[in-house]
Design a binder for these strands. Structure first.
Lengths: 300, 300
DNA sequence: GCTTAATCATAGATTTTGCTTATGCTAAAT
DNA sequence: ATTTAGCATAAGCAAAATCTATGATTAAGC
């Protein structure tokens, strides 16, 4: 008979993308989790994960099992919260966000947190947000992690490459890869919120390309719609893709960013973590995992 | 942290209406269940049951917790069935019913079983159904239990008194209790499917009342609508009540019937019960428990 | 091409959980 | 008053889950 522990372990692996990290997340050792998953796979009579080196992926059956498991965990969350309903909505959650996080992703996160928290969003630069975290002015923040950044208060969400986006009807659409010099004639669009704006600029200068700009905007959505409209091309994390634009690989241009959730260090350090904030963290993690599967892994 | 075992135990008590019977149902001893419930009540921080002698009732909090628990159990059922989906809908369930079971109740039962089984209903008399059970022609049957009837294959669902129903605008409506002789002038309606038809007839004869009949019908629904229409009065189990009629207590008339589910004895005897039929049994039990709470306990 | 590092699986020891039997307690029925 | 029915409590025990330690496999680095 399937138990709650099985469900938790399954979801932890889905959300962490690795047995080792998942084990740490739910505070058990990796062997315990291995055997738990093995047991669950025996119970449902089919493998749920494909264990490749470096990446754990769901099998087809695992994909079908996922919504059932999510549903159960949601139900248990409701049951666990039962009786604590008096402080419902009392807790305010201050969430920091950088501008270049996908609006769609952020919408999903806020929608999921809304019933349990009085949400306040703080939009700011990465460095400002990190400072705010240190001073306790915000509870958690969605921002790009520094390469290899890890720790108790760091929850890696997903890593994705930056791509050069061009209109779907652009002459270069369909090419596997182009050299930077082939883009010399292109008009660019600058997403001013991009963390890699300077680096990208330097990359092209280094290859002798000095691009013209058709638009500089703080709004990712506007920039990408203008790409779809064909007035120029721009770089962006692949998960920001919208209808009508396609990614194009540029030789030598391989920036990646890892989005993560960083929680108030003072809070993360506590041995007995506040269950409500843990709930918030887990919710974000779960949504990010689904997002990664449908948007990032799919885009490559 | 609340676990599946807690949920199962909670629902078993709700459905059985007693710790002892609930324990038997889920195959644990009564102390094990007591401590499980105590643990759950500690986890949610409030009592869920009122332990009166002779009856276990849900507290207000318990009532709010019930849908959460039902939801979880449904979810687990889906998870357990995962991977066994090939024999989905293959199993045919032959359910016997007597005519005097509430149509609304039966509708709820069939609706709940429909997704998992190819249902076949066999409507027949109690004695015929018992014979069919013995010969394995039906899998289970909804019928009135004989007084005190118990056993492995017997699942008591709810007990309810028979009442004399009169139109809501009848002169006697509002009276607490009347003597049988006060009904001498009344026109009666005979629900021919009623197991207590003969006994009722004898009851009135014994008190010197020889009633006139305005209708004899196999259809409970028609009989009760005719009571509401005012052409006569009739006796029926209280859960059959509809809009426009009210129950009236008649001195000395206190028949009760206990509705139960009896399963194929050959099947119930097996040590390792077929999970799909166990599922069917549990579904019926759960619906009956809710029915009892809203219809029978409410009506007194 | 060999070594190192990372990650999941397996084995055996240990702790924890949940169950059982036995018994006590309380309210209702006789 | 005594018996009966039903839930709570206690102590002992068995099974399940976890932990530590180790092995196997693969990717990456020198």
């Amino acid at each position: 008979m399937i138990k709650r522990a099985h469900v938790r372990q399954f979801l932890a692996v889905v959300d962490a993308g690795s047995f080792t990290q998942a084990a740490a997340r739910i505070r058990v050792t990796q062997p315990a989790l291995s055997s738990g998953i093995a047991e669950l796979e025996k119970l449902v009579g089919t493998p749920l994960f494909i264990r490749n080196r470096r990446q754990i992926r769901l099998t087809e059956a695992g994909g079908r099992f996922l919504p059932i498991a999510r549903d159960l965990e949601r139900g248990f969350r409701a049951a666990d919260d039962f009786g604590r309903e008096r402080d419902r909505q009392a807790t305010e959650l201050k969430l920091g966000v950088i501008r270049s996080v996908s609006g769609e992703f952020l919408q999903a996160v806020v929608t999921a947190l809304r019933p349990s928290f009085a949400m306040e969003l703080i939009e700011n630069s990465e460095s400002q947000l990190r400072a705010s975290l240190g001073s306790g002015r915000i509870n958690m923040a969605l921002l790009p992690l520094r390469p290899g950044e890890r720790g108790d208060e760091v929850v890696p969400l997903y890593e994705e490459p930056l791509a050069m986006f061009i209109a779907a009807d652009h002459p270069l659409a369909g090419r596997i890869e182009v050299g930077p010099e082939e883009l010399a004639a292109e008009t660019m669009i600058a997403r001013r919120s991009c963390e890699f704006l300077d680096a990208t600029s330097r990359f092209f200068t280094r290859h002798g390309v000095r691009p013209r700009f058709a638009l500089r905007s703080e709004s990712d959505e506007r920039c990408l719609r203008m790409v779809a409209a064909g007035i120029g091309i721009t770089t962006a994390p692949v998960s920001l893709a919208i209808e009508g634009i396609v990614p194009l690989k540029v030789a030598g241009y391989d920036f990646r960013r890892e989005l993560g959730l960083i929680v108030d260090p003072a809070w993360a350090a506590l041995p007995d973590v506040d269950p409500r904030l843990a709930h918030a963290r887990d919710t974000v993690t779960a949504i990010a995992a689904d997002w990664r599967r449908t948007r990032v892994d799919a885009a490559g």
